[in-house]
Amino acid sequence: MARYGMVVDLKRCVGCNACVVACKSEHNTPNGILLTTVLEKEMGIFPHTNRVFVPVLCNHCEVPACAQVCPTKATHRRPDGIVFIEYEKCIGCCACIEHCPYHVRTLVLDNRVLYSDGKTTFEKPVAQKILNKVATKCDMCYHRVEVGQKPACVEVCPAGARIFGDLSDPASAPSTLVKDHAGWQMLPEKQTQPCVFYIG
């Protein structure tokens, strides 16, 4: 079975945020909720300084702390490796939010996409509508992946900084990159075994 994952190439990423907005648009997430963001980490002392742009998203851990604590199994790891939330089953208890070491989950307090007038809503067809009072996060664009497309953030990135593929296949693009560039995972000490790798 596949183990879907992503390699984020920090050398390529220019911090343009196209991925952040593509994800927002793909899922039509409620106001204030972003399923992926690009952190900007300031490094060094002037003039030897820069900002490192670090795209972050759900790590789709092989040992997901969130799924382990989910009382209803709303959050579970699919056979293809995607850590998935079934919104219908989620009771909004926030256990997963507290236990995710990466702080990538958000509780939805108001699932509408409201314009500045506070009244008009923006609706669009989405694969799985985000409900009220549920936990939400990156779903690895399962609806795209299932039909052979790349996740929205991967497709849009002009810098080629997000590389999607099957980590169980040693010849896949992400597997090769992890091997060739000594890819690393966030917080390995948490033993969650993320499927999102970084190279720099």
Binding site: C16, V21, S25, D117, F122, C157
Partner: peptide
């Protein structure tokens, strides 16, 4: 929604954040 046109050689199928968000501009109250 908006996506890049893969046949447009200037943008090669990509579209930036500013372009993507314009789908909702149209409906601004």
């Amino acid at each position: 929604e908006i996506k890049g046109d893969p046949n447009a050689a200037n943008s090669k199928g990509y579209v930036c954040a500013k372009g993507l968000v314009r789908a909702i501009d149209v409906h601004h109250p």
